[in-house]
């Protein structure tokens, strides 16, 4: 399981109702159902992922988040999770607003574009960073809305989004302390527990 997902689990109440936006093949939802007995629903658009998630016995809805989430009622889920999808949606701020409307709490993870490697790459080469973690070229990347840790916190403060907890994952085992101390420089992944 991806490191950011193991971090999230402790914020999810056992037996609660969870909506996972962009759930992929459902690995995380399956873990949550097994270990925290949640009632989970996943949203996904990739057909192979959808089939894999169905085969895991999960409840999966084929839906494109960019088409809106108006079909979900206000405060109808205990937690809405979106792992590593914020940067890939057309209107990240609108999706965040929708998540906060649907869920009593939300958990968002995203790659931090402020990481020193990104800055170094852009600063020295003058080109959009391409790495193992961001393998796409600028013209074919699904990640159309990269942001930094500070960008995200600025948005939260503008929109009166309350940050209940934050956690950061560094690049290597040596970096966790750096990542939590100077997240905007050393966190590769940012994890936010938010509410209204």
């Amino acid at each position: 399981m991806r490191l950011d997902l193991t971090h999230i689990q402790r914020w999810i109440e056992p037996g609660s109702r969870v909506l996972d936006l962009g759930c992929g093949s459902g690995e995380f939802l399956e873990t949550l159902q097994r270990e925290r007995s949640v009632r989970g629903t996943g949203i996904e658009i990739d057909e192979d992922n959808i089939n894999a998630a169905i085969a895991r016995g999960l409840n999966i809805i084929e839906q494109n988040m960019d088409g809106g989430l108006a079909n979900f009622r206000d405060q109808s889920f205990d937690t809405v999770v979106m792992a590593h999808a914020l940067q890939a949606v057309h209107y990240p701020d609108k999706v965040l607003e929708e998540m906060l409307r649907i869920g009593r709490q939300c958990i968002v993870t995203f790659p931090n574009f402020g990481h020193w490697r990104c800055r170094l790459y852009l600063g020295t080469r003058g080109r959009m960073p391409v790495s193992k973690f961001m393998p796409h070229s600028w013209y074919d990347t699904p990640n159309i809305h990269f942001c930094t840790v500070r960008d995200f916190e600025a948005l939260c403060s503008e929109r009166n989004i309350r940050i209940l907890a934050r956690d950061f994952v560094g690049n290597t085992d040596r970096e966790p302390l750096l990542a939590t101390t100077w997240p905007n420089l050393f966190a590769t992944t940012a994890i936010y527990h938010i509410t209204r």
């Binding site: 169905i54 409840n59 979900f72």
Partner: peptide, 19 residues
């Protein structure tokens, strides 16, 4: 079909949907 799915989600019934 989406109307069916939306109603099922709102009724908190387990549902899987594919288009």
């Amino acid at each position: 079909s989406q109307e069916i799915v939306d109603a099922l989600i709102a009724a908190d019934r387990p549902v899987t949907y594919a288009e």
